[in-house]
């Protein structure tokens, strides 16, 4: 049985697309077949982050219009065996896709892949509904900011109402020195409010921006970096392994080096 997972947040710019591309690559790196679906019609950029932009020929809309077969629209990542992308159309009206159509595509994809990971657009409108329609699981991405957490809470409520009950949380852009100085919400604060299980913590790190700009997922471009490790851990946890959480305790507010166990297990 393949797993259909939506990456969503409510608030924009918190790292959904970053998580989708890097987590997708990390899971493929474990030997799984992974299809990434860009559900951000109108503002596609998953292809950019994956460095696959130049190879996009067809999009999900062409598949729906019957202009190509699903297999033709999938862009294979040559660097990582098993990783493919189904691009979204950039130029068309984003209202032109209906949840039912999205479901058809994702259900078809599920026949050939272990993981279908859907990158949802910000907001809770049609694009959001398109991206959750076929999902069995959700990964909520939030940053430790009140507005992002509030929106995450809203989205969790909507997902629960839609019957998506397997919901895990990723807290992105953690800045340890700010938490230490009590200037930022801690992961515990976020967890306590949202009340869904934590599956990963990703530090705010330059390596993420570098990899974004190069169009190279961290697992390929900078596998030794802290965020690469964080994504690898999330991939393993999705696979059911118990991996201790990283603690990015800063040395007197210095670089994030120290790894320590927090949250037992």
């Amino acid at each position: 049985m393949s797993r259909i997972i939506v990456i969503t947040s409510g608030k924009g710019g918190v790292g959904k697309t970053t998580v989708t591309s890097n987590l997708g690559a990390a899971i493929a790196n474990l030997g799984r077949k992974v299809a990434l679906v860009d559900a951000d019609f109108g503002l596609r950029n998953l292809d950019l982050l994956l460095g696959l932009e130049e190879r996009v020929v067809y999009t999900a809309l062409d598949v729906l219009a019957g202009e190509c077969r699903l297999a033709q629209a999938l862009v294979k990542d040559k660097r990582l065996n098993g990783l493919v992308l189904l691009p979204a159309a950039q130029n068309r009206n984003k209202e032109s896709v209906e949840p039912e159509q999205m479901k058809t595509i994702i259900t078809a994809l599920a026949k050939g892949y272990d993981y279908i990971i859907v990158d949802s657009p910000a907001g809770i409108e049609l694009g959001f509904r398109n991206s959750i329609v076929a999902a069995k699981e959700a990964l909520i991405v939030t940053t430790p900011e009140i507005a992002a957490v509030r929106d995450a809470d809203r989205v969790i409520g909507l997902l629960e109402a839609e019957g998506v009950s397997k919901i895990n949380l990723i807290v992105n852009r953690i800045k340890p020195h700010m938490i230490e100085e009590n200037k930022m919400m801690s992961v515990e604060d976020v967890l306590e409010l949202l009340g869904v299980p934590l599956i990963g913590v990703i530090p705010d790190n330059e390596a993420v921006i570098v990899s974004t700009n190069k169009g190279e997922p961290l697992i390929l471009g900078d596998p030794g970096s802290l965020p690469a490790l964080a994504f690898k851990n999330i991939a393993q946890r999705l696979e059911g392994e118990k991996v201790p959480f990283l603690n990015f305790a800063s040395d007197q507010g210095n670089i994030l080096t120290k790894l320590r166990r927090i949250f037992g297990g």
Binding site: I146, R150, D153, R154, I156, G157, L158, E160, L193, G195
Partner: peptide, 22 residues
């Protein structure tokens, strides 16, 4: 009761759980 949800009732409301901000 998560953010964005509004529960209205013409009687007493009992919630076993949190009422989150929003």
């Amino acid at each position: 009761v998560r953010s964005g949800l509004e529960v209205r009732h013409p009687g007493t409301i009992i919630i076993l759980g949190d009422v989150n901000p929003g």
